[in-house]
Every structure is written in structure tokens, then in C-alpha cells.
Design a protein around this nucleic acid. Structure first.
Lengths: 259, 259
DNA sequence: TAGTGGTCTAGACCACCTC
DNA sequence: AGGTGGTCTAGACCACTAA
């Protein structure tokens, strides 16, 4: 059994160790791309048990400065220039210019972007989605589920839901590439006039499943964003449900002060 | 020593246990206000070691459905009637109605709100703030630092920075209570006409210091929001730097589609 | 195969809270 | 005093990755 020094410290040993490692990264002793010493090496260096090092590494991972992969080790992440999701990404002029929102943003920051289509096809609307779309729960909708990459790593999953009667005559929406300007441009081309987009955001810790899909450490913060596209008739013609790695995005919204 | 069954399961035991407990809460077997069985009781019930239960409870806490306090135990949280921070909180009509934004929101959800003033007075502008305010770094500004409570627990710290020449003739801004409509109403009363508010959000894990100020578990997600108040002259007359417990807030923004 | 992280054990001591 | 969570130990077995 262990000597069991106990928990009677002002600041726990594992926090001290975590802080030391984080400091080494911030100070540049460990640079982006470097490997953090292995857990067994840290056990020796600090003279503590494996469990304590383990707990320290959980803290270090939570700082977002490090990424750990099973059988490999922990690597110092290169500070990614986050993508700014500003509210003018939905300007109609961008669509007329032929750019989808996410591409326009990627251009600004010079990062490589990629989209992987996970599913496009009919689906029974989940309850919450059906409610937002104003259709009955379980009604058939078109679902478009994508995974977005930035510089090769997944940063965002997005699923768009559109009522069947809205999409049934727009064949482009059933293909992987909806064409210039994205799906909003196609909807506009079919006679829908957008009045506004309503975005709802909540930040929380990633579940186990989510963290694996986005290649995050379990418990890393994610942002859950749901966007509704509302037409001038007051109809919600699309609900987009998005989950983003929080450290990859900064959100910016402009709120007019006018009454 | 332990029998060391090892980690060779598809889904780890601690995740299974965490899911079971979360399910019991979602299903209503454990209701808000109920105590979760103690860790030692869970050890018996599930026939695993303390460490495994401990890890399971970390997962359960991450779900936000439970709150743990040291010598007491874990209690199922009141279904957090999160405060919706919608973008219409800055409508001029609210200010003319005499309500500050945070009070107007609290009324909607029926929660008790409290504000504690931590500091009001002159301060040398931090670099990032000075940049946003368009003043020189280190220039004197008025800082108003508050801590917001909701149902007795701290949920948000906010610091407003205002250029000295803007505030020097508005004595209300130096007092704890800036009067009906809040500081924006006072600025409007002094001739400033707001054009827009620009909010920038980023979610991340709380640092040790931040988590203690907001009474969060270390590493719990927080939202860092910086708001600039822009007048029709294009001047930023206030920068408000806020840190919020992520599980207490849902953010909503309406984005006009017009070009 | 060797090294790394991931899970688990059985037990210890400590700090906090309530009675 | 007795229970609760918080920290720590020493060791085990497993899964993943790379040479």
C-alpha cells in the first residue's frame, strides 16, 4: 500500500504538477509540436504515483495546450488561429458572390478547409427539430449531416434539417455539393426570401461520443449552436444543429441599438 | 492489491455507471433536490472500487445535472432554468422603461438576482481594453467591476471600462447604483446615441482562479464575452468584459438577413 | 516487442460538514 | 464522532501505436 501522505495540502500535488507543465508550455520550454514527457517519466521526475500524474494530465489537457493520443503520448498543440464566426457571414451579397459561409471565412484566415458529408437523405424529424421547423414530430425532413475540418482536424459537425415540401423540388439539395452560395442560395433561388437567422448558443463539456467525433479530450468544452433560417413569411425553412470545438471558434455578433 | 480486471471493455465501467446515474436523473428516479447516493454506497451497490465510482461521478458532474460539495455529498440540481441572454436585451425601450438588462431578464425567468459591486473607480486600461476603447494603453479609465448572483450563487463577473472623458461629468456612473436603465441610460442622457453593440464570445475551461470566483468545479466551461458599445459617431464608449458560468446561460442572437 | 496511455483495485489519510 | 468527498499510493492488466 501507499504511504498515503493524504490530501492535507493547501494546493493538491496534482494541481502543482499540472501548473508546472502548463507554465513550461507558456514559457516556451515546451514548444508546439513537442512531446510532453511520458507519464511514467513524470512519475519518476516528480516522485509521485501514476494516479497523481494521471490527474495532473487531466488538468493540463483541460487547458487546451496539449493533445493526448492513446499509445502515443501528449503533444503540445500549435496555438490554432481560431476562426471568427461573425454575424455578417449570412450577408446575401456573399451568396450572390458564390461563396458559402464557411468558405468565405476560411479564406480570411488562410486555413485549409474541408467538408466531409456524413449523410444526406430523408429522416424522421427529432422532436426538438420538428418543433422548431413547425412540422409534426416524426415527419419526414431532409437531413444534411457534415463534418468540417480545419487544417486536417475535425472542428465542427453540422446537421441541417429542411422540411420535405421545401426541398422536394430543389434537386441540388440532395447532392453533396449544393452549388455556389450554398443551400441558402438554392432556397433563395426557389423563391424563399430570408428575413432573419436566429442563432442559439450554449457551451458545455463534450460527452464521450462527441469528444471522439471531434477528436477532443473528453470533457473539453464544446459550443452547441442551433440556427433557424426564417423567411419573410415567418416560416422556418431550415434548422441547422451544430457542435463545435470551443477552442477553434470565436463568435461575434453585431446588435443594432435601434429600437 | 486489486484483482485488476483491466481496461479491456468496449465501454469502461465508470462510463456505464455514470450513464446509469444520469439516466436515473433524467427519468425522474432522482429528482432535483435529492441526494445522490454516497460514493461508498455506490461502491457497494456496483461492486467496484472507490476510484471507479470517483471517475464515474466526474462524468456525472460534467453533465451538469449534479452538484457536489465536500463533506456533504452530491445533490441533483434544480433543472437550471438558464437565463436566456437574447440580443433584444439592449432595446432602447427597455432602458426607457427603467430596467437594466440583467434585471429585465431575471424577471422573465422568475429567479432571484443580486449584484455585488467589487470595485468602482479609476484604473489604468489594460492593453486589450485600451485598444478597443481607442485610447492609449495605460490611460485612465473608469472601471466598474461587479459580481452577479442568481438564486444565491455567483454566475457572472462583469467589468465595464469607460473612457474618462466620457464619464467625468456623469456622477451616477461613480456610484454603486447607476440609476434606472443602467449605465447605458446614463450615457444616452449625456448625449451619446448608440448605434450598435458588438459582442464577442469564446468558450473555454475555467482557470483555477476563475472557477473559485464563480464557485465552479475546476475546468468547468465558462463563456468569455466582451461587448463594445458603439455610438453613432463610431466611438466605443464602453467595453464590458464578462465571464459567465457556461451552464447558466443560453445565448440567442437574431441576425437580419437583409444585405 | 517495447513503450505509451486507459482502466481498475484495495487501502490509506485528510478535510469538510453535521450531529 | 461518524459520514462524506478529496487526494494519494503501489501495483495490475489492457489497448493502442510504432519500430
Amino acid at each position: 500500500m501507499g504511504t498515503a501522505v493524504g490530501g492535507g495540502r493547501a494546493v493538491p500535488r496534482y494541481v502543482q504538477i499540472a501548473d508546472e507543465i502548463v507554465q513550461q508550455i507558456r514559457a516556451g520550454v515546451l514548444k508546439p509540436g513537442d512531446m510532453v514527457p511520458s507519464e511514467s517519466e513524470l512519475v519518476e521526475r516528480y516522485g509521485v504515483s501514476g494516479g497523481t500524474i494521471r490527474q495532473a494530465m487531466v488538468e493540463v489537457r483541460a487547458s487546451g495546450l496539449v493533445e493526448t493520443r492513446h499509445g502515443k503520448g501528449s503533444i503540445v498543440t500549435d496555438r490554432p488561429p481560431v476562426r471568427l464566426r461573425s454575424s455578417d457571414r449570412f450577408r446575401a451579397s456573399h451568396r450572390r458572390g458564390g461563396k458559402a459561409a464557411y468558405l468565405a471565412e476560411s479564406e480570411q484566415s488562410g486555413a485549409t478547409a474541408k467538408v466531409s458529408v456524413l449523410y444526406i437523405g430523408p429522416m424522421e424529424a427529432p422532436e426538438e427539430i420538428a418543433e422548431r421547423l413547425g412540422v409534426e414530430a416524426g415527419a419526414q425532413v431532409l437531413a444534411r449531416r457534415r463534418l468540417y475540418f480545419r487544417n486536417g482536424t475535425p472542428v465542427e459537425t453540422a446537421t441541417s434539417y429542411l422540411p420535405w415540401d421545401v426541398v422536394k423540388d430543389i434537386p441540388e439539395l440532395f447532392g453533396e455539393n449544393p452549388g455556389p452560395g450554398g443551400i441558402y442560395a438554392r432556397l433563395e433561388g426557389d423563391g424563399h426570401v430570408f428575413a432573419e437567422f436566429v442563432e442559439t448558443l450554449q457551451a458545455r463539456s463534450a460527452s464521450k461520443a462527441e469528444s471522439s467525433e471531434l477528436a477532443l479530450s473528453p470533457g473539453a468544452p464544446v459550443v452547441h449552436l442551433v440556427r433557424e433560417a426564417v423567411t419573410e413569411e415567418g416560416r422556418v425553412v431550415e434548422v441547422c444543429d451544430t457542435l463545435m470545438a470551443a477552442d477553434q471558434f470565436v463568435f461575434q455578433y453585431r446588435i443594432p441599438a435601434a429600437d
